[in-house]
Amino acid sequence: MSMILGMLPSVLMIVAPILITAIGGMICEKSGVVNIALEGLMAIGACTTAAAHVLMEMAGVPHTLSLFLALFMGLVVGGLFSIIHAVAAINFNADQTISGTGINLLSTGVTIFASQILFNADRTKEFMMGMQTDALGIYPTAYIAVAVVILSWFLLYKLPFGMHLRACGEHPGAAESVGINVKKMRYFAVLSSGVLAGLAGGCVVLTQTIQYTSNTINGRGFIALAAVSFGRWNPLGVTGAAFLFGTAQAFAIIANNVPALKVLPSEVFNILPYVVTLVALVLFSGKNYAPSAAGQPYEKGAS
């Protein structure tokens, strides 16, 4: 028991960015746009935050201010890149999988290209100090994640705005007919997913590592995407899924130090989130929880 309690801070550290990203992905799908670019957007946010933080550190900006500004920049740049997806999916009725794949491919280039230009290396320079834990040993990112979950729940289920947003994902034609601006709603949703993925990328960098490399994100965005499906597109479910997957990931890291877990290769824990999602998708296949218009372009006037 004490071992599990002892693990809690590191589980929270790993869960937080996955959860933040997954909530963004959920909002996006709720509005009817599927965003498989979460992985790439996280990478872009992570690279921006790492680069901004190390540059400000070198310039002598106070630590807390630097952390805050760096996270903010990651969030903004993540949002900016998600505009590509928004324009393609919303204005041009593009295939959302293709434009998402494009952003993912682009992100591997852009992040390392920027590092090459800024630091003359295929990674950002190491910063001296990332985020610090509080008295309980918990990183502030956990509290950010909790705030994001509560805010998203309040927004989606307690405000008229959220109901309108969900209507766009269920039946955009009906939403338009009662005066909801489907395009605006979807823009808001895609941008929120970009902003949250960028923020989450920054959280990964500032808590789990000391620099951005091409391996920093390593599938976390895809895990978040899985958490959206596995969590059945609602905030509580997504939180549960993110916790399950994050715990599995934490086990994969911790397994090397715990003799009792050494009987299994640590990769078994790495595989877990993906297998669980796949099995869950098959088991729940009869009932469809996904927003019914997710992934389909909406053309005004065409019924």
């Binding site: 324009v87 593009a94 293709i98 434009s99 494009g102 491919l105 280039g109 290209f113």
Partner: peptide, 25 residues
């Protein structure tokens, strides 16, 4: 020349392919 420029070119190609639906519009 940072070699990652090739990834950027590839990514942009895919993004432009996604945007080709704009041509139809």
């Amino acid at each position: 020349i940072p070699k990652e420029i090739t990834f950027i070119i590839q990514g942009m190609i895919v993004i432009f392919i996604a945007l080709r639906s704009a041509l139809i519009l």
